[in-house]
Design a protein around this nucleic acid. Structure first.
Lengths: 218, 218
DNA sequence: ATATATTTTTAGATTTGTCTAAATTTAATT
DNA sequence: AATTAAATTTAGACAAATCTAAAAATATAT
């Protein structure tokens, strides 16, 4: 079944709502999509007709099995392109999202197979998010930065994105290196800074800028 | 100024009509775009409002300076992506057009700059067509196949794509070799065959299949 | 449990790119 | 030059994705 870019964006947004939030509703989806609830209702009917969502008026919705597969294939494309943009074209990880939003809608599946091989079949994108394989399977070891890992779970630092001298200097100060075990205790709304506890060290706070660069396996 | 993918496709098609044929008309453009003449008229009004074409009803149309620049930027993207698909992802040259048709509409200009550098700033795409640089300049040594060179301009054969025994046999029969000077006199709509005049030889017709494989410098 | 607020859906309009059918203009032919 | 043919344009309609405003259903609060 073919889908328009718009439909694909809705499918992705529904997937995201189902996994990253606990609010799957017409209104929350409209916020995610920057549209009005009325537009969401129209699209839900369209996606229901295409067997992408289960949907009953006033009763909510969720992805069907086919919808879930479709979502994973879009996410796969998005993350492979992000990997390409950062590791081949030299973009910074925070510059690639918008471009990948466009690239993910290129239809050729042959292209994605070849891109995947060209990149060496990576399992994680530059943000540490897992890249679904061609069957939609996701590596359960997920790399996430300190802004997105769950609170109070021990995690091991697995990579650092920005490897500038200045950053390495900071990490040395905090005694953070690859393999360091730590927990995120809390996050501050005001500036996004993060309170962490490292084994055998006092609790400290690191800035959002630093936290975004430190990736862990939870 | 931003343009939809559809507008971009029209711009590219007009550019192509102006350079590769001598029929720039509502009907020929509608054939190029696989639409009806009425749709072309609508689009011409839209493009005129955006200062992309000069257009007077019943009197024909052509690209403005801005339209020409825009066309070259789309062609640049298309050909860079084709180069990428063939030389990095291992596609065959005849498999890439459709995918590049989609990729050429990705908007980021930063992406194209980086892609260009990643590829080593190539001057010709896998079909031998020149890749405009970021200022829209085209290497005047343009390699084009006999299906796309301008009519009645002397051209020198510069390369042959398919180098199979069967093809070389045909070229020997026609007395075409590297360096041969020839003109394309006309093209036949019916089967895409091409009438050519080679120095000191009678006019002959070669099939589209052959013409597509013979590249020249105009 | 009834009134109020919130969420969701419907109805009808808009924009983009397309179509068909009819009208108009230009070109070709006798 | 008049007629016929071809090309082009207009008029009106349609599908996709959106909107606003109003109606309907559900949830919340008194």
């Amino acid at each position: 079944m073919n889908h328009t870019s718009t439909e694909e964006n809705y499918i992705k947004a529904i997937y995201h709502l189902q996994h990253a939030t606990n609010k799957v509703s017409t209104t929350s989806l409209s916020e995610e999509m920057n549209t009005k609830p009325a537009s969401v209702t129209d699209m839900l009917k369209k996606l229901r007709a295409k067997r992408i969502v289960h949907y009953q008026r006033y009763k909510g919705f969720n992805l069907t099995e086919a919808g879930n597969r479709k979502a994973l294939s879009i996410i796969r494309k998005h993350r492979l392109w992000e990997y390409f943009l950062v590791n081949k074209l030299g973009f910074e990880w925070d510059e690639v999202h918008q471009v990948a939003e466009e690239l993910e809608h290129i239809t050729s599946s042959e292209l994605i197979t070849r891109l995947d091989n060209f990149l060496g079949n990576p399992s994680f994108d530059p943000h540490g998010d897992p890249i679904p394989d061609h069957n939609g399977r996701i590596k359960n070891i997920r790399q996430s930065d300190l802004c997105s890992i769950p609170l109070k779970k021990t995690a091991a630092v697995s990579s650092v994105k920005n490897q500038s001298d200045e950053m390495l200097d900071m990490l040395k100060h905090y005694q953070i290196g690859i393999g360091t075990k730590l927990k995120v205790i809390r996050r501050f709304e005001f500036d996004g800074s993060v309170e962490i506890k490292i084994d055998r060290q006092p609790v400290t706070v690191i800035s959002k800028q630093v936290a975004q660069n430190v990736f862990c396996i939870v």
